[in-house]
Design a protein around this nucleic acid. Structure first.
Length: 619
RNA sequence: GCCGCAGUAGCUCAGGGGUAGAGCAGCGCAUUCGUAAUGCGCGGGUCGGGGGUUCAAUUCCCUCCUGCGGCACCA
């Protein structure tokens, strides 16, 4: 908040909410048959859900916005009026505001309009069930059910802009009719509004879908919706991350496995997936047309049932526990078409999955160990800001209360021992156990949930996993599902957006580019490139990933191209360098480090790769 | 999946009932250059697929696909 500089404090939320009323007033004026849903303030602005006989489209927005400006100019007062709830219902009925009537009925009977997971902050809430009166706000002719508060008059709603329309289900339930949600943004003044729009444009430039394609990392095409074609550079990035993760897991006591992609549906029936997720699973029926094999296979949507098969193959002893079984599992899920988003939400993805088979007593230690590992890894990728959500027992759940008590406290113990504070997510756990969800914050303040740690005492039961205990009897292991990156695809998308394409050197598909100034320098440049490619970088990264721009372009153009590709190091070679056997080192920040020996250049790159440092960028 | 919008050259985009145009990229030639764009030339498109209306459709209509913004979903 900057209320500094003697400026009057601005209550943006109040302005935004009032702006939603101005929008509603404008719409009801232009479309008298409009029925209103809810219209809260949200981050950066507001929305209002509206039903009109023919749905509003973006083409209608300019006229609505113009009407809103007229209302702003008239400086109409917001007038609060407390009325008996039955009077309010009668009034809303008389104006055919069916949705408002529905809300009022809820208020009357339950004292709250809370829908699942989302309670509308703009409406009256009464802890005691049932309310007898509600507040209405008048703005000129327009009357709305609302808790307030509002600015004094419509001249104070600030600088706004209607942004877009979208469909939204009434009360967030897809069985309900869909209203048109009009989104707007509101700021204290025109300058702030402009700054916001500028920020949006900047965020758009980070979009991994554009950057990833222009950086030559991957593409997606029509015939394979929601699945990624990884190009050489993108796959280099993928493999770099995979190699890094593998090393981390090797050092942390994991074993790695690979389980089948196609498994008979009978197997998924046993695991329970067929029943719950059949619609979201890809299936395959092999064989000649008309003579297909009489079995239906499903492509695995997740790796855990496969891991259990390996666990239960042969006998396990308590001495084998905890058994940390990792798999970079390629999973396929038939995600709803509207959910697909670049490489962040896809139908084929690779989880950095692992299943820890352990005893109940081992859960706290394993949780702590995992939290430590996860934080360590996030730090290496440049994410220091981490928060943890703790989702506890849902209403619908398997397992006794004792077991839940144990699992929940074990998870809490583990995360707090790792020095992580958790926020509670009541009732949001899986039916099979509680979970921790790890959320990282990126460079422009967006949150991404990536990691997860879930306790599961159902699947070992369903798939009959057991081990022989110290007592010689069979016992049921607990299974911890855990992921750090979540999926490689999504995590790479996050990395691209976090770094705006300027990946740290250790992750850059091309770390250095040779730029010979003239043809006569090409041979020397090739020689330098060869040498650097054969020197061993730390962390088992292999040689420097280097290429050479031997085109007939001018040096300036080659530099520009390397800049656009965000290559961390440019090694320029002309007569002076060839003579001295050196290279002129230029950073993508624009900094010119002058002529250095090949060894010096290597040391510099190696140091950066070794610390996984992010290179400072030009302002 | 639902609501709304969009799909024209590899990319960004203009155009519009009479079978298309720019910039960048690509290719060719010339240039051999000192830290973010050398010049000239050339090629490139079933205007997302299918159907309909029309003498004529890339343009209008229907439908499917894909994408975009949300909603719903995310084991």
């Amino acid at each position: 908040m900057d209320g500094s500089k003697g400026k009057p404090e601005v209550d943006l939320e109040r302005m935004r909410h009032s702006c939603a009323h101005v929008l509603a007033a404008a719409v009801t004026k232009l479309y008298p048959q409009a029925k209103l849903g809810v219209g809260p303030a949200i981050a950066d602005g507001f929305y209002y859900d509206i039903h009109t006989p023919t749905p509003l489209t973006s083409e209608d927005l300019p006229a609505i916005e113009a009407e809103m400006r007229r209302i702003r100019e008239r400086k109409l007062p917001f007038v609060r009026e407390e009325v008996a709830i039955d009077d309010a219902i009668a009034f809303m009925k008389s104006t055919h505001q069916d949705y408002k009537v529905e809300l009022l009925d809820l208020l009357k009977s339950r004292g709250s309009t809370a829908a699942k997971g989302l309670d509308d902050p703009n409406l009256f809430e009464n802890p005691a069930a049932g309310v007898s009166s509600v507040s209405l706000y008048k703005l000129g002719e327009f009357v709305d059910l609302c808790r307030g508060p509002h600015v004094e008059h419509s001249g104070q709603v600030g600088a706004f802009r209607l942004m877009r329309v979208a469909g939204a289900y009434w009360r967030g339930d897809n069985r309900n009719p869909q209203l048109t949600r009009v989104y707007g943004t509101t700021w204290a003044n025109e300058a702030d509004l402009k700054a916001y729009l500028f920020r949006l444009e900047e965020a758009e430039k980070r979009d991994h879908r554009k950057l990833g394609v222009s950086m030559g990392l991957f593409h997606i095409q029509e015939e394979a919706p929601g699945t990624v074609f990884w190009h050489p550079k993108g796959w280099t990035l993928f493999r770099t991350i995979e190699r890094y993760m593998r090393t981390k897991l090797d050092n942390d006591g994991y074993v790695e496995v690979k389980t089948p992609q196609l498994v008979d549906r009978v197997f998924w029936e046993k695991s329970g997936h067929w029943e719950n997720y059949r619609d979201a699973m890809f299936v395959a029926k092999p064989g000649k047309e008309g003579e297909e094999e009489d079995r239906l296979y499903a492509i695995k949507p997740m790796s855990c049932p496969g891991a259990v098969q390996i666990f239960r193959h042969g006998q396990r002893s308590y001495k084998d526990l905890p058994l940390r079984m990792a798999e970079f599992g390629a999973c396929h899920r038939y995600e709803p078409s509207g959910a697909l988003h670049g490489i962040m939400r896809v139908r084929a993805f690779t989880q950095d999955d692992a299943h820890i088979f352990c005893t109940e007593d081992q859960i706290p230690d394993e949780s702590q160990k995992f939290c430590d590992l996860l934080r360590d890894i996030y730090k290496d990728f440049g994410f220091a800001d981490l928060r943890v959500k703790f989702s506890d027992r849902p209403e619908q759940r398997a397992g006794s209360d004792e077991i839940w008590d144990k699992a929940e406290s074990a998870l809490e113990k583990g995360s707090s021992a790792a020095g992580l504070a958790t926020t509670r997510n009541p009732g949001e756990g899986a039916f099979y156990g509680p979970k921790l969800e790890f959320v990282l914050r990126d460079a422009i303040g967006r949150d991404w949930q990536c990691g997860t740690l879930q306790v599961d005492f159902v699947l070992p039961e369903r798939l009959d996993a057991s081990y022989i205990g110290e007592d010689g009897a069979k016992h049921r292991p607990v299974m911890l599902h855990r992921a750090i990156l979540g999926s490689f695809e999504r995590f790479i998308g996050i990395l691209i957006e976090n770094y705006a394409g300027r990946l740290p050197t250790w992750l850059s598909p091309i770390q250095a580019r040779m730029i010979p100034i003239a043809d006569r320098h090409v041979d020397f440049a090739k020689d330098v490139a060869r040498r650097l490619a054969h020197m061993q970088l730390p962390n088992g990264e292999g040689g420097v990933r280097i290429d050479i721009d031997a085109s007939t372009e001018r040096m300036q153009k080659k530099i520009r191209n390397a800049q656009i590709e965000q290559i961390p190091y440019m090694l320029v070679i002309g007569d002076k360098e060839a003579e001295a056997g050196k290279v002129a080192l230029r950073l993508r920040s624009g900094k010119d480090l002058g002529a250095v020996t090949v060894e010096e250049a290597f040391e510099r790159i190696a140091a950066e790769v070794g610390t996984r440092a992010d290179i400072p960028v030009a302002p």
